[in-house]
Design a protein around this nucleic acid. Structure first.
Lengths: 254, 254
DNA sequence: ACGCATTTGTTCGTATGTATT
DNA sequence: TAATACATACGAACAAATGCG
């Protein structure tokens, strides 16, 4: 047993992290920096292993976790891709509203408003903005096509931080075809990775009732959503009112 | 192109399954058969590898998936355990109701009813029972302790298949301390692994309003839950009405 | 208090299978 | 057919946590 070898008692408390976790952080940093765009391939596992100086298996484990979190998508034979809100399968990934009968039918959109303004105190707090900083407010309806015409089901009221969303206009929203989150990725380099929702039952107020074509006082689902990017900072605050007469919010527990 | 070599065009669709998936199925079968009880250790990875005649790494990957699904729980240095609804951390795992301020405070229970009867058609259908088969209905309130006394927040109305829950009585529910799902595990060998919920906003009816101490017509969250066991058969149908004035349903999207 | 055995956690390496281009 | 990429499987070694003697 070597006698004079101790030295270097590492703090061990905050210092330690498994290699694959460190690799995972590096991958996330590259994603946050925009080095790899949503929908595109990232370098192969062997390439990344070489870049980081670790084995392929270690890179693999890091990617495994990111794939489990829906940040990356693996495709055998093709490569590993940055997840996007564009693909059919993950489109409207965050929308849990389902028709009571059958699958997730397609929804129409109707833009009501899009304006730039100072963020209200509460919004600023949740989006981690400095008081008085700019924000963009968007309001819209989602409607289901029915024999008799379009029936409104969702009234969304959302807030975005002004800086990254500079240039977001009603016109741009109006002309965009496809999911809004896809627009955010493509035009403003903001990709939503995860979100937290607070759900309650509320009574429809005057304006809301009119927009959703229900009687005032009708019970509605209030869904307050805070969405986060790669670096886990909040980038969207959204409040949706769902009319749940023939739709429901679907959730899976495990 | 070889001419006379075709033969054996395997369906290729259902036939193939990776080794670790097969191991996973075998583990689930043992769990469903009650070979290992909730809260107890399962054999070590090397032991299982020997039993199934595969490498430790293959067993590991199977266990990894079951751990990700909250079926098993790994504890370094101790072993791998069968998940239970008993531990502090996973207690009320399926209850997403949170006070608007602060963490998940403790809730009081008040049993309203527990009776055996033929399952109504709709219940029988969802629980995959034969028409007219026995079922157990349980009704209860969950209440939050407040300075002025207990305030009702949840009204649960649930249905269980009669056969596995033979012997479930009001008395047994009454005297039980701890989560109901834990009682089901311990006394009836039924462990809930996952659940599907349908959520809507409804207006309080007469009886419900009285039970929850709100005015009739008050918007309530209706949470319809179908719970499943290891073998993925439905074993509980529950309809909860949540009063969301100072609580909300919390959900995480990713 | 110390060391040892057990068990899961991490890391590497290698070989082979399967999907895609 | 060949090259590339991810997927599966095995083996080995060491680290870290736990429990016991």
């Amino acid at each position: 047993m070597p006698a004079a070898a101790p030295a270097l008692p590492p703090p061990a408390a905050p210092a330690f992290s498994p290699l694959y976790q460190q690799i995972k952080s590096l991958l996330l940093k590259s994603l946050a920096a925009g080095e790899w765009q949503p929908g595109r391939v990232i370098p192969s596992e062997v390439e990344l292993a070489a870049r980081f100086g670790v084995s392929q298996g270690t890179v693999r484990k890091a990617i495994d976790e990111l794939a489990a979190e829906n940040v990356l998508v693996r495709r055998q034979g093709k490569g590993t891709f940055v997840a996007t809100h564009a693909e059919q399968s993950t489109q409207y990934r965050f929308l849990r509203l389902m028709p009571d009968d059958g699958g997730p039918g397609t929804l129409q959109r109707r833009l009501l408003e899009c304006r730039r303004m100072r963020a209200p105190a509460e919004v600023a707090r949740l989006l981690a903005l400095k008081p008085g900083e700019a924000a963009v407010q968007v309001r819209r309806l989602l409607l289901v096509p029915e024999p008799e015409g379009l029936r409104p089901v969702v009234f969304d009221d959302l807030w975005l931080p002004g800086t990254p969303f500079k240039g977001l206009t009603a016109e741009r929203l109006q002309t965009w075809r496809g999911p809004m989150y896809r627009l955010f990725e493509a035009e403003f380099a903001v990709h939503m990775v995860r979100a937290e929702e607070k759900i309650r039952a509320v009574a429809a107020g005057g304006e809301e009732a009119e927009l959703l074509a229900v009687a005032p006082g009708t019970p509605l689902l209030s869904v307050e959503r805070l969405s986060f990017t790669y670096d886990d900072r909040p980038v969207e605050l959204r409040r949706g009112l769902y009319h749940t007469a023939s739709h429901h919010y679907r959730n899976e527990l495990n």
